[in-house]
Design a protein around this nucleic acid. Structure first.
Lengths: 107, 107
DNA sequence: TCTATCTGTAAGTTGACACTTACGTAAGTA
DNA sequence: TACTTACGTAAGTGTCAACTTACAGATAGA
């Protein structure tokens, strides 16, 4: 999935929290929903659908349960994008500072 | 501004692009708007308002012009948050792997 | 088979927001 | 002073998404 979609998916507070919840260990949909008493189980199920379709979480069925866990590959892709975002920008800043020094030396 | 707001502000593609545009050098509102021929200048002005209120960009007036540039402090805050997000998660993963090794050793 | 449990989904509502048009304002310029 | 430039903002519109309620399907147990 493209990085824009990943970013938008995680900009929703509850979805960001869900990713944290299932980072270390699988959790069932009910377990996840019980962490959000302010909204219905259905709302969380729909958030899980968004996370599933964007590839950020994976689903595994076990009887009537559905176990969710983070898809580390997709998260890593997002991390790489953001890292390069910062790094490229900082490199440009450094280049700018260097050329500024050059100008100083010429004057 | 809280990190949630920063994340949501940047999840809008055009605003993310604006931040890149004014990362290295100041640009006027018109210069920024001219990079987005598909929408009106007014729309970009409103995006600049969102970025300004979230603290991600700073504004400086020069005659009728308004010069915009990135507020590196706020961007750094967001970066730190995301870094700790990954790092904490990776640390937990490592701990999990270690305890799994311990269990192997016991069996 | 009947029932309870766990879950996703369809339908409808509401609020947020990205956008356009129209207008207002402040600072240069003839 | 009049005009232009550069910009923000108010008002209105359409779209999208987060939410609720209601329902359907699949599995486990009596």
């Amino acid at each position: 999935m493209d990085v824009d979609t990943l970013l938008k998916t995680l900009s929703e507070t509850k979805r960001c929290e869900i990713v944290r919840l299932v980072w270390n260990e699988e959790k069932t949909a009910s377990e996840i929903a019980s962490h959000f008493p302010s909204v219905t189980r259905s709302a969380i199920s729909q958030h899980l659908g968004v996370l599933r379709r964007s590839g950020l979480v994976s689903e595994r069925r076990e009887g009537t349960r559905r176990m969710y866990c983070v898809n580390h590959t997709e998260v890593a892709r997002l991390r790489d994008f953001l890292d390069s975002f910062w790094i490229n920008s900082l490199e440009k800043l450094r280049d700018l500072a260097e050329s500024s020094e050059t100008l100083k030396g010429q004057s």
